[in-house]
Design a binder for these strands. Sequence first.
DNA 1: AGTTAAAGTGCAAGCGATTGCAATTAATAG
DNA 2: CTATTAATTGCAATCGCTTGCACTTTAACT
Lengths: 345, 345
Amino acid sequence: MTAKQPNRRTTIYQVAERAGVSSSTVSRALNGVSKEKSQGSASRAQRIRQIAEQMGYQPNWRARVFAEGKTRSVGLLQPSEDTMFKGVNTQIAAGFVSELYKHKYHVVLMPIGEDQEWQQTFDEQRVDGYAIMQQLDEVEDVCEAIVRHDSPAVLINNTENRNYLPRVLIDDYAGMQLAIRHLTLLGHSQIGLHLGTHSLGHYSVQERLRGFQEAMGFKSGDDSMIWREDDQSIMRHLGRGGSNRPTAVICYSHQEAIPLLYTLSQFGIKVPQDMSVISFNDIEFSEYLNPPLTTMAYDADRVGRVSAQLLLRQINENVDGMERETVTLKQHLIVRGSTGPVPQS
Amino acid sequence: MTAKQPNRRTTIYQVAERAGVSSSTVSRALNGVSKEKSQGSASRAQRIRQIAEQMGYQPNWRARVFAEGKTRSVGLLQPSEDTMFKGVNTQIAAGFVSELYKHKYHVVLMPIGEDQEWQQTFDEQRVDGYAIMQQLDEVEDVCEAIVRHDSPAVLINNTENRNYLPRVLIDDYAGMQLAIRHLTLLGHSQIGLHLGTHSLGHYSVQERLRGFQEAMGFKSGDDSMIWREDDQSIMRHLGRGGSNRPTAVICYSHQEAIPLLYTLSQFGIKVPQDMSVISFNDIEFSEYLNPPLTTMAYDADRVGRVSAQLLLRQINENVDGMERETVTLKQHLIVRGSTGPVPQS
DNA sequence: AGTTAAAGTGCAAGCGATTGCAATTAATAG
DNA sequence: CTATTAATTGCAATCGCTTGCACTTTAACT
């Protein structure tokens, strides 16, 4: 039951005293501010560093942050209600975190809920910048707060109305076109789009939808091949007869594709013989599904890294956020077993 | 090309001046330190709060952190080389983050690599406490650093030799017994354990292994039914004849189970008619696999939340970490389609 | 009303770095 | 060897808040 020792760490002043110089000299020697041109100063700086080392001196992060106003960390904004980092978002986040860590930055997770409690977080200025994950719904409000504080920020595959912030996008529009071309080359003409319950507010949803409607030549009012329902209801579409019976389904993501594959097999519909299935968002296990899933994939790690770089540029080079840069990354097709030629009958 | 405004925020002194009181009074009024028993002081505090509100005052987080030495954030330690938060870890992390956020704490991601660079992070004392994720290999080194700094910490389904820190465990030993009982009740006696490439250093691996060996009555030297190989090699075991041909496989996690299911179907081995498969670590899509996967599951969200609580207790109540508490959570069996009676032949 | 305890207030000292400025020292040029 | 310039150094302010201490005010009793 020993009382917790105050355990005071060695400060810069103690090092200064020991070295017989002032604290500013120590600070500058340790931070490499001086150019150390002269013989004497170089060796003196060397000696200071050595003493600091000996004394086990470690700069106090909190004091430093307070003094220079930089925290060397950034916030990652994501919806709080959702399970954190589903599917491909995990990989984006991994790339993001890893790239930042390489530059000695840390990532602070900041959940954004429907209540406006998160607002306060921005006022606190706990971090030097923000990244907004793609699945975040409250983009408008969040971006407004960010712009109001004039903070560096980057949107990860997301958009807001005012077009204030730089962003990294995935070319979902072109991706959808590639997916459709893959299917049409296989002879499919009746193609459904399974959006699941994803919000139409999401950038990716909008873009994929746009790509779909344009490539398929649908009027934007015609939603008969666009499904936002559960699998059971969708089976009604798939089971119906007639010439416009779908022979292929494009799934918004693995969240739709995996259950769909299961439901299809339950109904005795064979993939790809009777029905082709293609999905966006390649995940680790796509290739081990039954059948292995044909997907539209992108380099999620890279998305994270590029986002990090865009953010760091704003933070360090003091680039004005208004020079809003947009980086767009391509998707590519991974053909596996779930797509095949259109059935003859 | 306007120069960035200094944009000085309102400080506590400005509020104090406006309210005609001292900064300390403002600080105390805003932080609810005073008990406000007297009529006058209550209204005065009220008035101060109102003025602060009007002036758009927000306490400067950095200054506050510096002054009181608490950051109101904790570090989440995880391996850097691995893709962040695979499978069930995502859910644990989600529970952890969410619980902490409820208490106005933030979570800082701290990757731990093989190089010892991360050491410095601990010296910086950037956070008030640490949580160590289950898949982290460098536990010993990390715990040593934590103990050296006398920081609050919690191990999430992980252990270190010295038994220094409180922890939340999942009862993998009992879980394994349950899994085996499920199989033996179905008549299986030849059961294999598919560990994949998971390191034997992991707590979960050790415990499941121990449970397996004990329940099956193996000598610890007998490893013929314990496989640490890829699926192709494992098929040799499964295909072999004789009375000790395995009729069931327990997979360490979905990482092993999903590819195994695929490989089995490639070889024409039917699950569960020819072979039963059971896996640990239930994931979102376990029920949609083909066949739906029987799993050992636990409440990952709860693991995260309890860990957060243990950590917060240490931070706030100043509980000495040496009173190392251990919370153990149970697993439960989810029977789905991948397990069935032992084949007759 | 007077005494006592409790609550509230202001002063000023931290917290531990960074940094502008003036003074000092060293390097370089003439 | 001196004049000039460049590099280095120390002083002291700054960052904005919290908090211990001494003091004043208020509330609660007799």
